[in-house]
Measured scan of single mutants.
Amino acid sequence: NITNLCPFDEVFNATRFASVYAWNRKRISNCVADYSVLYNFAPFFAFKCYGVSPTKLNDLCFTNVYADSFVIRGNEVSQIAPGQTGNIADYNYKLPDDFTGCVIAWNSNKLDSKVGGNYNYLYRLFRKSNLKPFERDISTEIYQAGNKPCNGVAGFNCYFPLRSYGFRPTYGVGHQPYRVVVLSFELLHAPATVCGPKKST
C-alpha cells in the first residue's frame, strides 16, 4: 500500500531547467500520482495528452512514469508532439509516433530571460542525422557541412553544433522561453508502482 505522493513538484518547480539538447529525465516510481494538482495549476500554456485522457489519469496505474524537462522557445512547443519535424524534434528531443503521455508547457519569461540576454539555454542546430525517439545527444563535436574534414576547428563550413537562445524579456511570445515537462507513461508486464489516488488503496 503506497502512500507517499509522487515528487512532481520537484520537477515542475525546479529552480533551473535543462537546455533542450541535454534534456533532463527523472524516473518516478513507487508513489501516488495526483495529476489533478498539475491539471489545476493555472499558468499552463499547453497540457496535451496522447493515448490517454488527462482527466482519467487519476484512475490509472503505470509501471513507471518518466518526467523529461527542458526549455525551448514558445514557437517550438508545437514540435513536442508525435510525428513532428523541425530543429527541436529532429536534433534535440524526439517523441515516438506511438507516444503515451502528456506534454505540459508554460511561459517562463520572468524566470529564464535576462536584460542583455540569458545565454545559458542551448539547443542543437546541426546534426548529421535525426534523433531516434528519446535519444539524447550531448556531443559538442564540430559539425562538418562541406567535404573538408574540420579536425575539431570551427570555421568555413565547420560549425559548433550548439546555439544559444539568448532570451531577453522584451522578445515577442514566440521567442520567449517556455518550460516543458513531458510525462511518459510506461506500461510493462510488471507490477504497477505509480497509481492515481483512487487506485492506491
Rank of each mutant, 00 (worst) to 15 (best):
L187F: 04
F156D: 02
L187M: 09
L60M: 05
A190L: 08
S53T: 15
Y119E: 05
A192S: 11
R163M: 11
A190E: 15
N40P: 08
N120I: 09
Y119H: 12
V194G: 04
N75M: 11
S53N: 15
D34L: 00
V173Q: 07
R27M: 04
S200V: 05
F126C: 11
I2F: 04
N4H: 11
T170G: 10
P54V: 08
S78C: 11
H175S: 14
V52L: 01
N87I: 08
F126N: 07
A154Y: 01
V173M: 14
F156C: 10
A42I: 10
V65M: 02
I138R: 07
K199E: 10
G196R: 15
K199L: 01
S184F: 05
S184W: 12
R27T: 12
P54E: 08
I2N: 15
Y171W: 08
K132L: 00
I104L: 06
V194D: 01
G116Q: 00
K198W: 10
L125V: 15
A145G: 06
A154H: 10
S200R: 07
P169R: 00
T15S: 11
Y143H: 12
N4D: 15
K128I: 10
S184Y: 15
V173Y: 08
L188I: 08
V32F: 06
G155M: 02
P149W: 11
N58G: 05
G51K: 01
Q144P: 04
A154F: 13
P7K: 03
T193E: 15
D97I: 12
R73E: 12
G196N: 04
K48T: 02
L60T: 14
K132Q: 11
V77M: 05
K132G: 02
N30S: 05
K114W: 00
V37L: 14
Y159W: 12
V153C: 14
K198I: 10
N58H: 10
N1R: 12
Y178C: 02
F47T: 06
K198P: 08
N147E: 01
V32Y: 07
K199N: 02
K132N: 15
Y143Q: 06
S200W: 01
N87D: 12
F41N: 00
N40M: 13
A42N: 05
L122E: 06
F45W: 11
G116E: 00
T55F: 14
T15H: 02
K132P: 02
S36K: 13
L162F: 01
F41L: 09
P149C: 06
L111Q: 14
E10Q: 08
P191S: 11
K26Y: 12
T85Q: 11
T63L: 03
N64C: 03
K128E: 13
N157D: 15
K26H: 10
N109G: 02
S200M: 15
N4A: 09
T85H: 15
Y39M: 12
F45E: 11
K198V: 09
G174D: 11
K110D: 06
S200H: 15
I138F: 02
G174E: 09
V173R: 10
R163K: 01
Y119T: 15
T193V: 07
G74R: 05
I138T: 08
V194Y: 03
L122C: 14
K94H: 01
T140F: 15
R27K: 11
Y39L: 02
D59K: 01
P54W: 09
Y66W: 09
Y178L: 03
P149Q: 08
Y143T: 04
A190C: 11
S53R: 05
K148C: 06
N120W: 14
N40S: 12
K128R: 08
A46Q: 15
K110R: 11
G83H: 09
D98H: 07
G152Y: 00
S184K: 02
V115F: 00
S36R: 02
P54Y: 14
E10T: 04
F160D: 10
I28Y: 15
S19N: 02
K110M: 10
G196V: 14
Y119D: 12
F185L: 03
K56D: 01
K148S: 03
D98R: 02
K48H: 08
G152T: 04
E10R: 02
F45G: 13
P161T: 01
G146A: 12
F44A: 13
L57M: 08
G174N: 15
G116H: 00
I142W: 02
A46C: 10
S36A: 13
N87P: 04
S53D: 05
L111H: 15
L187H: 13
Q144V: 10
L111M: 10
I138H: 13
Y66H: 11
S36Q: 03
A46W: 15
T193Q: 00
G166F: 04
R16Y: 12
R16I: 12
V194F: 06
Y39N: 09
N109L: 03
R163A: 12
S36T: 03
G117P: 00
G152L: 06
I2H: 07
P191M: 05
P197S: 02
N75H: 00
N64W: 09
V37M: 12
F185Y: 07
R73S: 01
G174T: 09
S78K: 15
K148N: 11
S200C: 15
D9Y: 03
P149I: 14
K132D: 12
